[in-house]
Design a protein around this nucleic acid. Structure first.
Lengths: 182, 182
DNA sequence: ATATCATTGACCGAAACAGTCAAGGAGGAA
DNA sequence: TTCCTCCTTGACTGTTTCGGTCAATGATAT
């Protein structure tokens, strides 16, 4: 629910219905809506970190390999928790004063994790001459985001198909971007 | 308002406030919320077609040129009506039975317009040797979609900035994908 | 002065909202 | 059996928000 609507426009009644329990039970486990929301954000952040770690996304390595592991982690995450990614994203841009402060405390670091760490181990010599490496990365990042976004709207989410598509895309990028050996 | 929330969760009061008029005046011009919504959808569809036509997106032409015109049309559209694109998109996935039937009647054809017509006039000779043209197009399409999607979550965006980013992306693609003249 | 259009604040009944509460099971222990 | 402890819920509450109405005011042009 929170992945589709803002905090304020996500009624607890709908959340409970979607979860298959009564609203009363939800209020039995969580003192109020705010507490539920922050619990979910924390859980989402923890899970995201867990996946990033499990797939070895933080280890130093070949640039394309990092990209690939990052995508694999994301796919796995979306396979098990289809709404988690969009929930986190929605939360990141949430403006409701009742929660937005705490949100940033919890998930602020995920963004920086994504942005950093990817430009440490790039040797320009291995890419085609004169290429704008930042644009290259931007292109790859946006294409993968665009792909996931399209998939998310088409209902069924076949993780195997997504993984194969990602492999194809990365192969394509390698062919295009990597300097050809003579 | 409709570009950020669903039909049901977009109160008329907020719409009127955002428009700088009173709710009463809105109900003076539109019989009810539904009529307002469908009017806006129709207007959005008409405007989109007008822009696609004005920028010559339907004419047969060089592939890059079509891509370029398509993006320019989209940017121009977003510049003048910053929320129109996301409004249309949101509407496309709207499920409220009060409106979803009529929506499809009005905007159903835009999607097919986008998908068709782009692979007619490609001369493989002008692109770098051995490139997978379909993957190239997929990459470009997804990257631009991903870009717009990212922007959509950041609330109001600067159209001039978007236009500059698109130009940078297309320049990048040209440098990478086009065969170098010797 | 009058007719017409533009615009609004105050208001209405209905619905939705977050949150409460008393009470009905279900299972185990005595 | 009885008692105790969780789990679970429907019914309820007071408040807010919703779509929509209406009488009244302001503006403008004839």
């Amino acid at each position: 629910m929170f992945s589709q609507n803002s905090y304020k426009k996500s009624p607890v009644s709908e959340i409970a219905a979607e979860a298959g329990i009564s609203k009363s039970l939800l209020f039995h486990y969580f003192r109020n809506k705010r507490e539920l929301y922050l619990y979910l954000i924390q859980k989402a952040a923890d899970t995201t970190y867990k996946y990033l770690y499990e797939f070895g996304c933080g280890e130093e390595d070949d640039f394309f390999e990092i990209m690939y592991r990052g995508l694999k982690a994301k796919v796995a995450l979306m396979k098990k928790y289809p709404d988690l990614t969009f929930f986190t994203l929605k939360a990141y841009y949430e403006t409701d004063p009742e929660v937005c402060g705490d949100i940033q405390k919890i998930i602020g670091r995920i963004a920086s994790f994504n942005a950093n760490a990817k430009f440490l181990k790039i040797d320009p010599e291995t890419f085609v001459e004169g290429i704008d490496l930042k644009m290259m990365y931007t292109d790859m990042y946006l294409a993968s985001e665009g792909y996931l976004w399209e998939k998310s709207h088409q209902g069924k989410f076949d993780a195997d198909e997504v993984e194969k598509d990602f492999e194809k895309m990365i192969d394509f990028w390698k062919k295009i971007y990597l300097r050809k050996e003579k």
